[in-house]
């Protein structure tokens, strides 16, 4: 276990600074404003898709910056993708049933 004693190989060896997080926060607020504004316009089916796209962008910002994935090993993102993949596949297969169900 001696190989792991290097606990100080901290993910935050980078220089911490306040500025970047405030910028991200501003971006998140703008995106929120955007979703609310867009929701007022009737895009039909596109409304939900736009809302979800904006939400995904916001989540990406939170994951990458606020949750420091930018500074973690690439493996962490891989794991995030794995769990999203699991959910995504479940959604697709679920809709393999509901989309083609007669009577809907």
């Amino acid at each position: 276990m001696s190989s792991h004693d290097s606990h100080n190989e901290n993910a935050h060896a980078h220089k911490p600074s306040y500025g970047i997080y405030i910028l991200i926060w501003v971006a998140l607020l703008i995106l929120t404003g955007l979703t609310v504004a867009v929701a007022g316009i009737n895009f039909g089916n596109l409304t939900v898709i736009t809302a979800l796209t904006v939400a995904s962008v916001k989540s990406y910002l939170v994951l990458e910056y606020f949750m420091h994935l930018k500074h973690e090993k690439k493996m962490f993102w891989l794991f995030v993708y794995t769990s999203l993949f699991f959910l995504g596949v479940s959604l697709i297969l679920l809709f393999a049933d509901y989309t083609f169900l007669e009577g809907n």
Binding site: V89, D97, T99, L101, E102
Partner: peptide, 16 residues
């Protein structure tokens, strides 16, 4: 990816 093979008689869509 195979969970619904427990449910072949519940009336899923043919595609599923």
């Amino acid at each position: 990816l195979v969970w619904a093979h427990h449910m072949f008689t519940v009336g899923m869509s043919g595609v599923a």
